[in-house]
Design a protein around this nucleic acid. Structure first.
Lengths: 147, 147
DNA sequence: AATTACACTTGCATATTGCAAGGAGAAATT
DNA sequence: AATTTCTCCTTGCAATATGCAAGTGTAATT
């Protein structure tokens, strides 16, 4: 009986997701973009977790290749770059939020208010819509600024 | 202005979750336990992704320390060990499932049927209950076997 | 023209991983 | 009783990935 070893990270849906979530830094960049409104290289770099510059550049390229982030010149300042979440990225919101609900239950040192999990449970769609609107707000705010 | 660097992986709910999900191997072990009914060391070892023995031992210990897996002697064979999911682990099911739904949408080589995502969207609670029941079934099957 | 801001890249020491081999304890086989 | 097998790791070592500090190139600012 030969044991086949998998090298392609697609096929199995959990394995495919592990390609993004199974990396600490990709994971935190997704949090920054989807939940915290961060968009630029320096935004990510200044996150309190302290990602180093080579890893950040590497992960941003990886996420762009995966069709999750969209790299664009910042209209507010042409020497700066913004990374915008695609639809594929936005569709990760339910996953991220459900993960956060879990964390608020099991991390006794959580900084998130208990109301967060409660609000999500009572009306998941509304919570989701709120985050989507926030993403829109941040993105249009950047593009409505005249140079 | 001093930049504080975070070393503790709790506090922020996304960061806390990254402690489990932000590792490819922990992630896949959770899939094995929660969705594929795998419970023993050799089950995990024989997963097609091909985890090596040192990493497997390391991650099992990590997940046990985190209160996610429960290590017990296999009643079917006393020389063997089973790793059972705790309630904390089971509560990750919604997250895992929502991740799989995302993957079935965006991985064009997915092996999962399209009906999976549809079924989940039409009745999430039922899908969830089905997986919970499966976990119960596997666990009681192990414990109802007389040596 | 010189300085600053920004997004990287490079080099190197350190940490983590992957792979193959080994080992210890219990059970099954001879 | 001795040997083999099964199971769960541990160890050693090479390969890879990461963290950190410094440097590079381009665009804005002064």
């Amino acid at each position: 009986m030969t044991k086949t070893k998998i090298t392609e990270w697609s096929g199995c849906p959990a394995r495919y997701a592990a390609g993004i979530f199974g990396d600490k830094w990709c994971f935190l960049i997704m949090r920054d973009v989807l939940l915290l409104g961060r968009r630029t290289y320096s935004d990510f770099l200044n996150s309190p977790e302290g990602i180093s510059t080579n890893i950040l550049a590497n992960r941003l390229a990886k996420l762009e290749d995966a069709g999750i982030l969209n790299r664009k010149i910042d209209p507010r300042k042409a020497s700066r770059v913004c990374y915008f979440p695609t639809r594929k990225a936005r569709d990760l919101l339910p996953t991220l939020i459900s993960m956060m609900v879990w964390s608020t239950v099991y991390d006794e040192t959580t900084e998130a208010p208990a109301s967060f999990a409660a609000a999500y449970k009572s009306d998941p769609a509304e919570t989701l819509a709120w985050y989507e609107a926030e993403i829109d707000r941040v993105d249009t705010e950047i593009f409505n600024t005249t140079v």
